[in-house]
Design a protein around this nucleic acid. Structure first.
Length: 553
RNA sequence: GGCCCGGUGGUCAAGUGGCCUAAGACACCGCCCUUUCACGGCGGUAACACGAGUUCGAAUCUCGUCCGGGUCACCA
């Protein structure tokens, strides 16, 4: 055995397999020409982040539009940051937003597919096998530096304005010999395994990013860590091994990874792997309320960073996804207009149409997308969704809604079922409670703020007269005709045009009178069609409310 | 600070040297429709960061400046 082989045995004595073993175990995928294999590789450190949802969507749709595979892989190599239930949070979140998973973790506990395990903490032996091979080939070595030593070196580098990092003359153990290493290990010193980088900072590396285009950077020359002292790999190494063995064709990830891509490319080449295509996705930004600056959306500062926020607010998952699609593909909105009812998954997604710079998260636009979606739902769909939401987040409201399901559905049917132009006014379910409060006696709060240009006596007289002609069976036309017929009796114009042509001749118009009625019945100036509201409310309740108004005025 | 990436209306953006007197969407404003609101229709306000250069011609190519973002870990 030569020194490198001795070193490999010294460092990883228990590893008895070779890379070939795994190469044979995970052969090429059998997919059609051009099929793209993509993945999302989250760390189970908390809730599903908006950015993760976004990149997952992009990965998913890229795979879908090429009839490829989209899989999940859990990057749990950092025990310190791991959170209880982290895998469930993320995978269930993805499922909830309709991001289907072909392979890998498909729920918090179930794995699917033959390229696993899909959890890095369970792949230690695989990584170590490849590391051992690298050591044998003289491309990796042990480093015994402590955190303090590394820190000290960095300080010196900073003082002397030298690029920080473990490279060149600052790579203390780069030339360590077998016997030196053996002595240290016999002393029980912990070590990491570092790459013996073959790169040179003077040389440029050029790679084609599928979103950003050509990127030119200095080659990596840092002897970065491959295996941490606990034998678990760093992200960089795990990425190279996993995406090679799982045959990922397109690595699409957040653009914070651009700067380490030269490391990854060096690894792929040294390992003899085919370098995947890279696509770096721009982050979703937000305007910082304090500084006014545009910055990456942050889990700590922004509630909407955790995707669960949208669920709590009562957004439809599909609305959020559709909104994200408008950010992901600049031609998506045009497509959507041309295909208003098509499933977004049939949209032909093109990475080239992705924005190079980060988009500001636009809640107003999200609401617009969401309103359009909800306007297409019928009353029983709305009923199902609202009650499901309320059951989870507003139990008082849930009880009110379900007390009389048929009644509640009738409420949602107003201006919706069969309406030629359905209302576009609800963006999320938590708005419903307030929006329709007057339809539920438990929530109704009377309010008699009448138009200022009208006299109380006139309004009172009108309402008194109105209840004598009111018929709950009137259709929309008859209903309004009655108000129009009453109008002249009190000095109001029956016709709006008539009133506008000669406003001084009247106290107001029939429109003003219907406003009086509207406020009496609902406590609001603005509501959906009043005639329908009164029909749903029923004669008894309507009369009760009008009589109350007469009393108060 | 080094290294990357970016900068078109308030926002998302189209744009690949002449078709740009710069598209569209959201938001905003006005008018119309109208029982209110919403919807819908019509119209409007509003942008190529700045400076040089290349060119007959630049939002588009080059350089510089400024601004913004990312990254420099035994974190991902």
């Amino acid at each position: 055995m030569n020194d490198n082989e001795l070193m490999a045995e010294l460092l990883l004595p228990d590893i008895d397999k070779t890379p070939e073993y795994y190469e044979n175990m995970f052969p090429q995928r059998d997919l059609k020409e051009g099929a793209r294999v993509t993945r999302v590789a989250p760390s189970p450190t908390g809730y599903l982040h908006l950015g993760t949802l976004f990149t997952s969507l992009v990965n998913r749709i890229t795979a879908t539009s090429s009839e490829g595979i989209f899989f999940t892989r859990i990057e749990d190599t950092d025990k310190k940051r791991e959170v209880e239930g982290g895998i469930e949070n993320i995978i269930d979140g993805l499922n909830r937003f309709g991001i289907t998973i072909d392979e890998g973790f498909i729920s918090g506990t179930e794995e699917k597919g033959v390229y696993g395990p899909y959890q890095q903490s369970k792949r230690a032996e695989i990584y170590q096998t490849y590391v051992k091979d690298l050591i044998k080939r003289g491309l990796a070595y042990p480093c015994f530096c402590t955190a303090e030593e590394l820190e000290a070196v960095r300080n010196i580098q900073e003082q002397n304005k030298i690029r920080t990092g473990y490279h060149g003359e600052y790579a203390k153990h780069r030339n360590i010999t077998y016997s030196e290493a053996k002595a240290l290990i016999d002393e029980g010193k912990p070590f990491v395994v570092r790459l013996r980088s073959q790169g040179n900072e003077e040389n440029k590396i050029i790679f084609e990013d599928m979103i950003k285009g050509k990127i030119e950077m200095p080659q990596n020359d840092e002897d970065f860590v491959l295996l941490k002292s606990d034998g678990i790999p760093t992200y960089h190494f795990a990425h190279a091994i996993d995406d090679h063995l799982m045959h990922t064709t397109h690595v699409m990830r957040g653009d914070e990874w651009i700067s380490s891509t030269p490391k990854h490319i060096e690894l792929f080449k040294l390992l003899g792997f085919k370098v995947p295509k890279y696509a770096h996705v721009s982050p979703i930004m937000k305007l910082d309320s304090e500084t006014g600056a545009k910055r990456k959306i942050s889990k700590r500062k922004d509630p909407e960073a955790a995707v669960h926020f949208f669920i709590e607010e009562g957004y439809e998952p599909i609305s959020v996804v559709e909104y994200l699609m408008t950010i992901a593909a600049s031609d998506f909105e045009d497509w959507r207009r041309a295909n208003p009812d098509a499933d977004y998954r049939t949209f032909k997604f093109n990475l080239k149409k992705m924005s190079v710079s980060g988009a500001l998260f636009d809640n107003v636009k999200l609401n617009d997308v969401s309103k359009i979606h909800i306007s297409k739902l019928n009353s029983s769909e709305v009923y199902d969704k609202v009650t499901a939401w309320a059951k989870e987040f507003d139990s008082d409201f849930y009880n009110i809604l379900t007390k009389d399901a048929d009644y509640t559905k009738k409420v949602y049917a107003i201006d919706r079922d069969g309406a030629p132009k359905p209302r576009k006014d609800i963006a999320k379910w938590n708005e419903i409670k307030d929006f329709y409060s007057y339809m539920f006696t438990e929530l109704f709060v009377p309010c008699y703020e009448m138009p200022e240009n009208l006299k109380n006596d006139d309004m009172k007289a009108f309402l008194k007269e109105y209840i004598t002609v009111y018929d709950e069976n009137d259709d929309r036309q008859e209903w309004f005709n009655k108000i129009k017929e009453l109008a002249p009796k009190f000095g109001f114009a029956a016709d709006t045009k008539e009133y506008k042509a000669n406003p001084d001749a009247f106290k107001g118009s029939a429109g003003d009178l219907s406003t009086v009625l509207r406020i009496s019945v609902t406590g609001r100036r603005n509501t959906p069609d009043l005639c329908s509201i009164m029909q749903v409310l029923g004669r008894e309740e309507v009369l009760r409310r009008i009589n109350n108004a007469i009393e108060v005025l």
